[in-house]
Amino acid sequence: MTPLDVTPSGAEPRAQPDKSEMTTRLTSAVVMAVLALGSVVVSIWTFVALAIASGVIVSWEWGRLVRKAGFDAIAMMQSAAVAAVAVTVAVSRPGLALIATALALAGTGLAAASFPTLGWSLLGIAYSVLPAWSMVWLRSDQTLGVTALLYLLAVAWTTDTASYAGGRLIGGPKLAPQISPRKTWSGLLVGTFAPALIGFAFAWFLGETSGWRLALVSVAIAAACQIGDLSESAAKRRFGAKDMSNLIPGHGGLLDRIDGLLIAAIAAALIALRDPANPGRGLLIW
């Protein structure tokens, strides 16, 4: 979720929002941020609940985009997989989570075999099931799980906010005008490297990790965040959509707001595999 990025990454440029629209966007962003932070801090099960709810919405929005069907049988299967994965990972049963993911892949493949968008339907699992697995696994670390999730959110939010600020203040050549007309190379570079400061800040807070190494990890996760943002923009461009839905006032769909975070979460989990028994430590301690 992106609390400070108030310019949606829709397929088409938008006019500058008026004061009332800006207030709506900021209010929605604050509410999303409070929900995200609160669910992370309170307990793993509050975060599991948020991960499941978010995954169900993402599955619905993805089906709405690629199949024009919304909450159809495929979205239901992928939503069920999100719930099964989130719960089984939380109770340290990765084997069951893997079975649930495999069943979702197989079920999606069979159900979408007659659709010309079969590949796109399968890709929905990367936006719903895999991020839920990644973030719940990171949160499951009893020692550093909360810190790892807060770090991931801080990097993702900084990436989006710095990208927006860099593009607006510096401007310059467009990054991919055929995909997202408002994104610039300056925004990409600022958004990718600014999160290094988050790495240094968390290293200082933790006191037992290398600042420059965690800064490099932050840059890598920020790059994944940028890929997620561009990929979702490309998908919307491919299907001629401006927003994934109208679920969030002033922002569009949930996936419009957390596209970068979802891919960043997968990247963070892959990095955390350095220490499979303690994923928070694997991500943060260098």
Rank of each mutant, 00 (worst) to 15 (best):
G109V: 07
L123N: 02
G207C: 06
E21D: 12
G107S: 08
L169C: 06
A277R: 10
P3E: 01
A224R: 04
W157D: 09
V48H: 01
D18K: 02
A36W: 14
L35I: 14
W62H: 11
W212K: 08
S9E: 05
A264I: 12
L197A: 15
G145P: 02
D72Y: 09
V87G: 05
R257G: 09
Q226A: 15
I285V: 15
L230E: 03
I74F: 05
G171S: 04
S9D: 10
L273M: 15
I248N: 06
L130V: 15
L123T: 11
L189H: 04
T27N: 09
P17C: 00
G10Y: 00
A97F: 04
A36I: 12
A15E: 09
I266H: 02
S245C: 00
W60S: 08
A69K: 15
V56M: 10
L103F: 09
R139T: 09
P13D: 00
V66P: 01
L65P: 02
W212A: 10
L103S: 08
A15G: 02
A264G: 06
W120E: 14
N278P: 01
P94W: 07
S128T: 15
A86W: 13
L254D: 11
R257K: 14
L188V: 11
I248Q: 05
W62C: 13
S231I: 11
E208S: 13
A73S: 13
V190C: 05
S180H: 05
S245Y: 02
A201I: 06
